[in-house]
Design a protein around this nucleic acid. Structure first.
Length: 251
DNA sequence: AACAACATCAACCGCGGATAC
DNA sequence: GGTATCCGCGGTTGATGTTGT
């Protein structure tokens, strides 16, 4: 795995993501899946670091993200879990489907922290001491019960291979639709549609697609290179060209 | 209407663990 | 076993929006 961090070292863009960048990232992941964050930006046509891409995807573009304000139940859950787990935002997020650790963290600092302090000022020190005792129990509970959203990605991305050619017609249509979207809502509804297609048809009818994850996680599917090739610098150019061609053809 | 103060949240940074070589 | 790299996490920052004066 000892590879240079070419993408990281290259001049990378920072700051807010443009809709065009979002489109590119979504289109790329939809077509090839998540296989290596640090090497994805280049073939995806993005001047971003892998870290930035991952963050954007995990916190904003992922199709299963629930947007909008937190419900009472969610608030209660966060308060309760924070009481026992402290600032383990990813663990808390794992118990709240559709919510990201970043979102929960922000919500905590902007809304719940005050309430926590206002309602339980004398208990804070006590809670701190209690945390250590309760921690292992809570973790065991979560390991057994909670959906490990972040780990889904880990397992699907840990082995590096490369993109696979799926059903290009469907992908191109989806990609074109993605790039026609202007709002997050449009993108999400497009995701929903494209998943229905992929889950029911595309993946199962693609002879080169080996399904190891449930269909609902198809966008995390480990990509496969054509005929045993691997993702290296030489093939990199191939995917760069492919991506550029897709830009020309479909966008 | 103009400005300041505050609130919100997307994004960045740095660190540590896991893993590949 | 040592080193390089990737990934995910938590803390923090900065831009933008909202509210108050």
């Amino acid at each position: 795995m000892v590879k240079s961090q070419q993408c990281e070292k290259a001049a990378v863009k920072k700051g807010p993501w443009s809709p065009d960048e979002d489109h590119k990232l979504i289109a790329y992941i939809q077509r090839y899946g998540i296989w290596n964050w640090s090497q994805m930006p280049k073939p995806a046509g993005l001047a971003r670091s892998g870290k930035s891409c991952r963050l954007r995807w995990v916190n904003y573009l992922r199709p299963d993200i629930k947007r909008g304000s937190f419900s009472k139940e969610e608030e209660e859950a966060i308060l309760k879990l924070h009481e026992t787990m402290g600032n383990r935002w990813s663990a808390i997020a794992a118990t709240l489907p559709g919510r990201t650790d970043n979102e929960i963290k922000n919500y905590w600092h902007s809304h719940l922290k005050k309430r926590f302090k206002a309602t339980e000022p004398v208990q804070e020190a006590q809670v701190f001491n209690e945390k250590k005792k309760l921690f292992s129990e809570t973790e065991l509970f979560l390991l057994g019960e909670a959906p490990k959203a972040s780990k889904l990605e880990t397992t699907s991305t840990s082995s590096s291979s490369g993109p696979v050619h799926g059903d290009h017609n469907k992908d191109q249509i989806a990609e074109q639709n993605i790039c026609a979207c202007e709002t997050f809502g449009e993108l999400q509804s497009l995701w929903a549609e494209s998943h229905i297609v992929r889950d029911s048809e595309a993946i199962f009818t693609d002879p080169g697609f080996t399904l190891s994850n449930p269909p609902t996680q198809s966008w995390l599917q480990e990509p496969i290179f054509p005929s045993g090739s691997s993702y290296n610098d030489a093939s990199n150019d191939y995917w760069v060209n492919l991506s550029m061609q897709a830009e020309i053809d479909g966008i």
